[in-house]
Design a protein around this nucleic acid. Structure first.
Length: 323
DNA sequence: CATCAGGGCCCTG
DNA sequence: CAGGGCCCTGAT
């Protein structure tokens, strides 16, 4: 692992579309804890790579829900061009879906008697990915067939070995390695980190990305079905990983198709207050009610329960989240 | 101590 | 298209 200290700083502002919910957008309590970012109310830190160069980001809330404004501080090493600053700005807007037009979704939410309080509470929240496609792919792979504790272990050991530690703004934030950095790393090296069969996926995915076989930008232009088709071609990407990528990286709001068993139990409680409802019924009901915003609507309700979990004990939920 | 399933996916038949 | 196997870990 290498460490970089970023002393210099440049600032700019972004005005997200209104309404906007800062904390709901920049912090997702349902995600497993990692060293890739840090958050407190109104403030957020992470690393970002633009054209393989690495920067530190501090993002702060400087507006209100109906008059949104965020301040971005870019921390850098030696120098930074205006063009890089502009690229960073555009990338932040994309990753956190800051230009989203959620009018139709918000109208839909208003007519939802049952969950309107939740939608209102999180009005303006975006589905987002702090990482690029390769980064979230790594995250998704360590999620596969593992409990939360194991996932955290795998992610940390990978970052400790191949990541970059950034020091800026009195924070230590990790950045995921570049795919080509694993060029000289063998599958066995990866296996020695106790990540199991995922070593093969990560090795092969990294090769593909390093060789430029995947065009992340091009995928942003595709519709959901075609984007899914392209993602599923990647080695190690099945229906669940594709769903995560489509929703979080590509902001496809209607990806409520694949429901994993552990999610099914939580949905059953959330939507029916029952321990077990068939995945087909859950999917059909949600699709009927929220249409092309199916996954986004579920995301609001899902994250809300995990926010609540920070302060209150929710017994049925604790049982379903295997640590 | 042994067994087993888990926040999936690949491969085979 | 169904089912076995995969890495490792904590739970039983």
């Amino acid at each position: 692992m290498q460490t970089k200290i970023l002393k210099n700083k440049k600032e700019f502002f972004i005005s997200p579309t209104s309404p906007f919910h800062f904390d709901g957008t920049f912090h997702k309590p349902s995600h497993f804890p990692d060293k890739l970012d840090d958050w407190e109310t109104g403030k957020y830190w992470q690393a970002i790579r633009i054209d393989k160069k690495i920067f530190g980001l501090k993002i702060e809330n400087k507006g209100e829900a109906q008059n949104p404004k965020i301040k971005v501080s870019v921390f850098y090493d030696k120098n930074i061009t205006d063009k890089k600053i502009e690229n960073i700005k555009q990338e932040i807007i994309w990753r956190f879906d800051l230009n989203a037009d959620l009018k139709k979704f918000n109208n839909l939410a208003k007519s939802d008697k049952r969950f309107y309080p939740i939608f209102k509470k999180w009005l303006g929240m975006r589905n987002s990915s702090s990482e690029d496609l390769y980064g979230l792919l790594i995250v998704a792979v360590v999620l596969q067939n593992a409990t939360v504790r194991r996932t955290v272990q795998m992610m940390n050991v990978l970052l400790d070995n191949y990541g970059t530690k950034l020091k800026f703004d009195c924070k230590e934030i990790f950045a995921i390695w570049l795919p080509e950095n694993l060029g000289n790393v063998s599958e066995q090296d990866l296996r020695n980190l106790k990540i199991g069969y995922r070593a093969k996926f990560i090795k092969r995915l990294s090769q593909n990305f390093a060789e430029g076989k995947i065009d992340e930008q091009k995928l942003r232009l595709l519709d959901q079905e075609n984007a899914k088709k392209e993602l599923m071609k990647l080695y190690g990407v099945g229906p669940e990983t594709a769903r995560i990528l489509l929703f979080e990286v590509y902001h496809q709001y209607n990806t409520f198709d694949h429901i994993a068993p552990w999610q099914q139990k939580i949905y059953s409680q959330l939507f029916y207050k029952k321990p077990f409802v068939s995945a087909e019924k859950i999917r059909d009901d949600i699709k009927k009610q929220y249409g092309k915003y199916s996954m986004l609507a579920v995301h609001y309700i899902w994250e809300d329960i995990f926010w609540r979990r920070k302060n209150e004990k929710i017994d049925w939920l604790e049982k379903e989240i295997r640590l």
